[in-house]
């Protein structure tokens, strides 16, 4: 990795990632992981950054417009990366879905909205 190059790599216009106070704004760990994965794979020579940008533009433009929904940039980002890797013959989309399903069964409870475990201090 070229350490003098400041992240994010150039993404502007509709492909620009959300920023807060000038810094990348990730809402969840998976978003930062997907973001650096896209950079790492580009640097490994799997695609040119312009290819990724084109895939992202296509994904964002072809997504249904949902004005009442919050804009989910990193959902588009993940889809664009998966599509590009499929085009490059790196992954098969079904493979990703099948594994996601498997991981979901292995790891119940990552959805945080319906749990009732106790929170607070445990003293030792």
């Amino acid at each position: 990795m070229n350490q003098t190059e400041a992240p994010p790599r150039e993404l502007d216009g509709i492909t620009a990632p959300p920023l807060r106070n000038g810094e990348l704004d990730f809402e969840a760990p998976w978003q930062s992981r997907v973001f650096v994965m896209a950079q790492a794979l580009c640097e490994a020579g799997l695609y040119a950054w312009s290819d990724f940008q084109a895939s992202l533009i296509l994904t964002i433009n072809s997504a249904p417009v949902a004005p009442d929904q919050p804009y989910r940039y990193y959902d588009h980002f993940l889809k664009a990366l998966t599509n590009l890797l499929r085009q490059k013959g790196v992954v098969v989309e079904e493979e990703v879905y099948a594994l996601a399903l498997q991981l979901g069964q292995l790891e119940p409870g990552h959805d945080h909205h319906d749990h009732d475990h106790d929170h607070g201090p445990h003293s030792h």
Binding site: M37, Q69, R72, Y74, L85, V91, A100, L101, H110, D111
Partner: peptide, 19 residues
């Protein structure tokens, strides 16, 4: 649109496959 957990699992699956 996928819910949060579904998209997170897909991200995790993609990372696992690439590793």
């Amino acid at each position: 649109m996928a819910d949060r957990s579904e998209v997170e699992l897909r991200a995790q699956a993609l990372e696992t496959l690439l590793i």
